[in-house]
Amino acid sequence: MSAGISVDLGSATPPYEQIRAQVSSLIAIGALAPGARLPTVRRLAADLGIAAGTVARAYRELEQSGLIETRRRNGTVVAGTQAALPRPEALATDAGTVTAAVDRYIAEGRKAGLDDAALLAVLRTRLGQGDG
């Protein structure tokens, strides 16, 4: 069980960063709910065919950002979605400003290894929260 996580060893993005970005995105879109258990470091590493230290680094960074937490008996679980995506400041009504923000969103998503479907899912989730 790799929780829908994959690694492209041919990518310029380091494997630990690919894992970190994918788990963060899965949390952001609600595919991993608070309290959901993640695979163990060893299990995910074996599933992906990579070193356990690579997965451990991704998990450490996710834990430092407050997205996951490690519990002695329960393993590694999703802490919540509050840190998954920064709350955007109110955008100006100027169409150019909004377009520039969308361009930045797409660029950041691409850097994180997200495809169009994942970017749209994050956007739909955020729109569905009724904050704006």
Rank of each mutant, 00 (worst) to 15 (best):
M1T: 09
S2K: 14
S2D: 13
S2G: 06
S2R: 13
A3D: 14
A3P: 09
G4A: 07
G4S: 08
I5N: 06
I5Q: 09
S6W: 13
V7I: 13
L9K: 14
G10S: 14
S11P: 05
T13Y: 00
T13W: 01
Y16V: 03
E17H: 04
Q18N: 09
Q18M: 09
I19N: 10
A21G: 09
A21E: 14
Q22P: 00
V23S: 02
V23E: 03
V23F: 02
S25A: 11
S25W: 03
L26D: 03
L26C: 03
I27H: 04
L32R: 03
A33W: 06
P34Q: 01
P34N: 01
P34R: 02
P34V: 00
G35L: 06
G35C: 08
G35I: 06
A36I: 02
A36C: 04
A36K: 09
R37P: 00
T40G: 15
R42Q: 10
R42Y: 00
L44D: 03
I50K: 12
A52Q: 01
A52M: 00
G53A: 04
G53V: 00
R57N: 13
L62Q: 10
Q64A: 15
S65M: 07
G66P: 08
G66R: 06
L67D: 12
L67F: 06
L67W: 07
I68C: 04
T70K: 11
R71L: 12
R71P: 00
R71G: 01
R72S: 08
R73I: 05
N74D: 14
N74Y: 13
T76C: 06
V77H: 07
V78M: 13
G80K: 15
Q82G: 11
A84N: 05
A84E: 05
L85D: 09
L85I: 11
P88R: 13
P88I: 10
P88Q: 10
E89F: 14
A90C: 02
T93Q: 07
D94E: 15
A95E: 07
G96M: 05
T97H: 05
T97E: 06
V98R: 14
V98Y: 02
T99H: 12
A100R: 14
A101R: 08
A107Y: 01
A107H: 05
G109R: 12
G109V: 05
R110F: 00
K111S: 15
K111C: 03
A112D: 12
A112M: 08
G113M: 06
G113R: 05
G113P: 04
G113V: 02
L114G: 00
L114S: 02
D115N: 07
A117F: 00
A117I: 09
A118N: 08
L119Q: 07
L120F: 02
L120T: 01
V122Y: 01
R124K: 12
T125W: 05
G130R: 10
G130K: 09
D131Q: 12
D131W: 07
G132S: 02
